[in-house]
Amino acid sequence: MTTVEKKHPPYMLVWLWLAVLTIIEVWAAQAGLTRRILIPILILLAIWKASLVAIYFMHLKFEPRRFLFVVLAPLPLAVILVVAVLQEWGK
């Protein structure tokens, strides 16, 4: 049997990215941009930040590929749930 030594990503660099992206988010929200421009920017930044947390802090980058199928399974289900809820639009 062998012991697997995990390599650790540069956590402080990820932290710096998260801090900078949060500052950009807050600035964008208060910069008076039109909603058509603002909302895609905020969605992009939120997905970027969430991905950094999942990939580096939750170590998804280092997990076995077959395990990722289990972990990412709820994402399409979440999309289906949101689409189902949106059927209530305007009712």
Binding site: V82, L86, W89
Partner: peptide
């Protein structure tokens, strides 16, 4: 938990924009 919070976010979208 992903499904739980997705349900909350979906409800929020409907309540706010729908």
């Amino acid at each position: 938990e992903v499904m739980f919070f997705t349900a909350l976010i979906g409800a929020y979208i409907i309540l706010r924009w729908g």
